[in-house]
Design a protein around this nucleic acid. Structure first.
Lengths: 243, 243
DNA sequence: CGTGCATACTTTGTATGACAAACATAGAAT
DNA sequence: ATTCTATGTTTGTCATACAAAGTATGCACG
């Protein structure tokens, strides 16, 4: 007779993982906005952990492109340029349309029901106008699809990209026009998923992200032009006279 | 008048970066093969650096999916399953066909000449049959295209994927049949690039990676079946009776 | 006034040493 | 042979320490 596998799923949550999560969240939801300087000792205090752990977390954030190390070694929250955003959205388009295609092929009824539920909740929250909550739920929406795509490789990569543009997404949602459009695109997407039409679902996802890309890139370009006009040149070089 | 930017490009090569490079290379070229256990203190000795630096390097490798941390916290070189390999190659197909498309659109004569030169060298090395050197040059080939794609975001991601399957690529090249095919595919690709036919180049790249994918996935599946047959079941669970 | 220099502070990179917790190993005891 | 025990190994975490580089402060002097 065989013994069953009774092992407890150990979850001693490493300190560095905890720190990593906290920092990643802070960045992705804009609590630490792009360009903000991150000082190790301050992070230690904010997180209540040692420098060792903070530094290990920072190395992971660095590999995830969420922070940048300047030439003077100082660490700042990464700034996503309009060009970067464009490429990231192109990649999301490829990855997530593939992911949703697989989701439709693989998902059981429960997964689809979950998606439909999130979608309904989204509608409700939309009417309330709470952008923060909306962003979180939209995140759940994507997450459900990624989880159901059956590919850890693709899901991981898509998640990483999503995190990088999460702050931009949130700000983009603040514009009511884009929100309405996005909701319609989601409607189409959900419809295709419920009908288990993989092809249509992939197309819908692709269209949705393509539109989101255009909106965000346009907005970023405008901001970049404004910034360039306001500070004629060499703005980034002189670190002194910024205040 | 503007002051020129005279700053010296500082290159104090951080110890942790050095360690990271060394480890990444060791893994990607199979010196540390998949599944190998990595012990921090041994790495310290091998690299001649402190545990602090090794651990920071390990965190980056972890974020790059080149190593895995087991439930017992032990670190091993990541094993790429046939399924992972398939997904990675699908992503490479998407990314690198896009990259080469852009390369053709953007590249100056020099970049193209460089590519042609590498291609010629590849032919020569192919006849000599030195697989290691071949793999390195093929890497340069891809790297040149990625650098010329004009997108840091895409290039980074593609590089990361390439690193993950680099060991598999090397082993795949050991099979002469696949090598010949691959060379022909490269011929087609180079031809399209020289003619500055972006569309054709993208197609050629896609076809090449698709073929490479099939070859590698098939091979991996065979190996996995063999391994499964040799060790009936629960092989991964009992860490004791393996020796 | 502001120019220049000296001094003190800050931040990062790196190394060490310490210790607990989780495991693994080898003997010892039954 | 099974179980218990003592000992070693490995990782996770912290606290320090210090050098190098950069930044800020402040003072003296023409």
């Amino acid at each position: 007779m065989e013994y069953q596998d009774l092992r407890i799923v150990e979850n001693p949550t490493l300190v560095r993982e905890h720190a990593l999560d906290k920092l990643r969240n802070a960045i992705s939801r804009g609590l630490y906005p792009p360009g903000m300087r991150l000082v190790e000792r301050e992070l230690c205090e904010a997180l209540g952990v040692s420098r060792t752990s903070v530094r290990e977390a920072l190395r992971q954030l660095q590999a995830e492109n969420l922070i940048e190390v300047g030439k003077r070694r100082n660490i700042t929250v990464a700034i996503v340029s309009s060009k970067d955003a464009e490429d990231i959205y192109l990649m999301r388009e490829m990855l997530e349309s593939l992911a949703v295609q697989r989701f439709v092929a693989l998902a059981d009824e429960n997964a689809i029901k979950k998606l439909v539920r999130i979608h309904k909740d989204l509608r409700k929250v939309l009417n309330k106008g709470d952008v923060r909550e909306l962003a979180i739920m939209a995140g759940e929406f994507y997450e459900t699809i990624l989880n159901g795509s059956g590919s850890k490789v693709i899901a991981d990569m898509a998640r990483q990209l999503l995190t990088r543009v999460n702050y931009l997404r949130m700000r983009s949602m603040a514009e009511p026009h884009r929100l309405e459009d996005g909701m319609h695109e989601w409607d189409t997407l959900i419809e295709a998923i419920v009908e288990r039409n993989a092809e249509a679902a992939a197309k819908a996802m692709s269209a949705h992200l393509s539109n989101a890309r255009k909106a965000i890139v346009t907005k970023l370009q405008q901001e970049e032009e404004l910034a360039a006009a306001a500070v004629p040149e060499r703005a980034a070089v002189s670190s002194r006279r910024s205040g």
